[in-house]
């Protein structure tokens, strides 16, 4: 079996340069590649275009890259929880492209699936569709949306094996599987790295073919954004 293992985040991010386009998995702070983000901060690469559903919070997730002005452009569906983001967006320091969440997901999937573009009903008749091709199918209007072209995709899984197979947990799956498919180089960080053969092939969410580098992550904070509970009765 092909071995995809690298020692750490530092080795996993070899080849990362200024001006590149990255995909980063996660929904809010759930399922984000914490180790890769820390390493991007350490490397100090800048002028980045980041494709990620959200932009983290001020002091965690992609917020850490924002704080150091490493991001030139964000492509997201919702960016509401971050004051520094707002400041940089309103001052024009950073570009933001907001796209519907399902369109974002499908554009990621299309990227990895060899589909250059597809029609979706989302955003028809709104400013999201401005300047885009539209077409009628069976009496309903659709907008043409294109695949991305990222140099790297950074994803985070619960378990992975040395062959790059990944299993996600709970709603931490979110955008990670499609982004894993889409990266020219896909880096997977996992909470638990095991030998090939230890994961049940029936349970694999992302087959190892989509993963070029995998490493055992460390020091996961897994911060909760909105802690909502039912009081003990």
């Amino acid at each position: 079996m092909i071995n995809k293992v690298v020692n750490n985040a530092q080795d996993a991010l070899l080849g990362v340069e200024n001006g590149m386009t990255f995909m980063l998995g996660g929904f809010g702070l759930c399922g984000i590649p914490e180790n890769c983000i820390s390493e991007l901060v350490r490397l100090g690469v800048s002028n980045l275009t980041c494709i990620s559903n959200n932009a983290g919070v001020d002091d965690f997730g992609l917020g850490l890259l924002l704080k150091k002005h490493q991001i030139k452009k964000m492509i997201s569906s919702y960016v509401g929880e971050n004051e520094e983001f707002e400041r940089q967006m309103l001052s024009g320091e950073m570009d933001v492209e907001l796209i519907p969440q399902g369109t974002l997901a499908e554009r990621c999937r299309a990227t990895g699936a060899g589909i250059p573009a597809f029609y979706t009903p989302a955003g028809y008749g709104t400013e999201v569709a401005e300047g885009k091709e539209t077409r009628e199918f069976n009496g309903k209007m659709y907008v043409l949306e294109h695949a991305f072209n990222p140099e790297f995709a950074f994803v985070k899984a619960w378990k992975g094996d040395t062959a790059g197979n990944l299993i996600f947990k709970g709603t931490a799956r979110n955008f990670n599987p499609m982004m894993a498919m889409a990266g020219k180089i896909t880096v997977a960080e996992v909470e638990e790295l095991v030998e090939a053969g230890e994961l049940d092939p029936n349970q694999i969410h992302t087959p190892g073919i989509f993963v070029q580098r995998i490493f055992q992550g460390k020091d996961y904070e897994k911060r909760i954004e909105q802690r909502t509970v039912t009081p003990k009765s």
């Binding site: 929904f27 809010g28 702070l29 759930c30 399922g31 559903n53 929880e81 969440q101 399902g102 974002l104 997901a105 499908e106 990621c108 999937r109 619960w158 996600f168 947990k169 709970g170 709603t171 931490a172 799956r173 979110n174 955008f175 990670n176 599987p177 499609m178 969410h205 897994k222 911060r223 909760i224 954004e225 909105q226 802690r227 909502t228 509970v229 039912t230 009081p231 003990k232």
Partner: peptide
Amino acid sequence: PIEGEEDADLINAGKQTVTILKGGSLFDSA
């Protein structure tokens, strides 16, 4: 979730911690 049983890997679209009922399922965004 009952206080103390929150799971950072189980949230709703509002980023709130939730639970999943019997017969529920989990899947990716696409």
